[in-house]
Amino acid sequence: MAFFKPSFGTDLRRQSTAFFQCRSLHSSAPQFKSPVSIVHPVHHRVRYKKSILHPKYQTLLTIPKWDPRSHLFKPQAVQPSRVKTHWETTLAPDLMLANYSHNELKLRGRKHQEWDGSSPYHVNRPLRSPAGNAMATPDILPRTFRTVPFVTSIWVNTFNHRAVTEHAERNIPSTVMIQQITGVKPAPAYSGVSIMQWRLRKERNVGAVVEIKGAKKDQFLATLVEVVMPRVKDFQGIANSSGDKFGNISFGLDPEGVRLFPEIEGNPDLWSGITGLNITFVTTAQTDPEARLLLSSLGVPFYGRERFHNVPNLDGTKQTRKKGVVYYENSQE
């Protein structure tokens, strides 16, 4: 029998799916069996580190990461956060009042639908897709003190085209660059699609990606708003058309803008082939205008026409519904 290297990626998932799909009494059943099993009787077809199950390692496995006794513990709160304090003392009460409206009700989003039961085959069938074949959308809850938006995390990623055309090693400076700017170790980013014109193939390492949280996120936001954005040439701000309709706003910085980060600017000779960044603010805001209100109160500039959606409609404005999002006709310019 062929020896399988332990791969916990797509292969394992494919094989275990196949295992459920085929009949186990079939002669080819063993080859579809999951390579790892922890249910008795255990016959692994891959090497499995049983030693980690030894009782002496149990304390290591059970102590959580935040506990100073854990070998993974890393002190996080080394200084109070200026951004967080500002949000707590000034922004949160203002945002709650600005977003609030009387007699607001829950606005139900698109959901998966029940079958009507007209056919016996409807029993145990997966639910029907939402109306219009669109994605399911979350409910919009009334704006109260429980739904005051804040920035949960910031995603930063870069795409290095030279890693495609020249060599995958070109990713190394891009990865280090993101690590320098954010202070968090990035993960390699892989292309999701093949584009023949760019000579790009699917699942190739083409850049780096990182999610910043906690104190490092606040530090990054403050640097971006106070040091970088004011000095980017011809920078109008983030376009109001940006956003995924559910409170997450993205924008791009070109290489010239990235050079303005103090970590790069302080030592420009060290860096060659700087690439641009894609930055996404992940917020708990329920709609994009709310997220923009939050970000602009933190100092991020915006430009363009504002288009409100999923706002409680109290004065009978004409509304249209598109892909689970309610739009209003007389939006502000």
Binding site: F308, V311, Q332
Partner: peptide, 9 residues
Amino acid sequence: MFFLRRSLA
């Protein structure tokens, strides 16, 4: 922010 709405007051 949402000045297009008329508040009750």
